[in-house]
Amino acid sequence: MFILNLILKLGGWGQRRLSAIGRATIMLFYSLVGRPQFRKNFPQLIRQIYVVGVQSISIIVVSGLFIGMVLGLQGFHVLVDFMAEGALGQMVALAIIRELGPVVTALLFAGRAGSALTAEIGLKKATEQLLSMEMMAVDPLRRVIAPRFWAGVISLPLLTVIFTLVGIFGGKLVGVDWLGVDDGIFWSGMQSSIDFWDDLMMCAVKSVVFAITVIWIALFNGYDLVPTSVGISKATTNTVVQSSLAVLGLDFVLTAVMF
């Protein structure tokens, strides 16, 4: 009886997930497919890049700096035991470019911008703004969802690039300027082990994939929520939890596929 119940619950859960994925795909399809309307959507796009991207810069820069500094500090104390502090630059750069840069930026982005987007869309839905747009013969998918989607897909990779560079400089700040690793060795060790195509492009591909994932989850949770205060708070939590898990899972898959 217990096992039957468990299977029933699992089945119900799976069905709900699948139908949610279906609805999310339909949402994305209708928002992105069709004749683009640059004249009307471009100002919205700029505005959304401002909200989603520019306003996230401070948190990205500060966390990038500190993560780079911590990596420099930790790495130095391990490497110095093997007389290999020359490899510090390469260690910091590899760690940030391959993993921390795209992943941490995506996680911060989900918390900072994703949850805000969910709440905004959810509130627009709760106050019938989306419905009234529909009745004004304006497709909210094209006018509300699409610009936010593109803004996220453009912003997150840009933020990742900023995070990565700031992080490496954070590592350099601690390693070179504070702990006395040679400047030349720091940079040349890095340059010899980082490949433009393998590592930087990998970082870019990852962050584009994460951007699509996070922004899609955030927008769908907002668009699909139950328009009550409980529904909105649940949806924002869902956005952060689901997109964090999705980013970490996808990171593993992408790393396994591409290396």
Partner: peptide, 14 residues
């Protein structure tokens, strides 16, 4: 395009 010919006033104002 049909909806351009109609209009709706929502309860909450919207």
């Amino acid at each position: 395009s049909l909806r351009r010919r109609m209009s709706m006033l929502f309860q909450s104002g919207a």
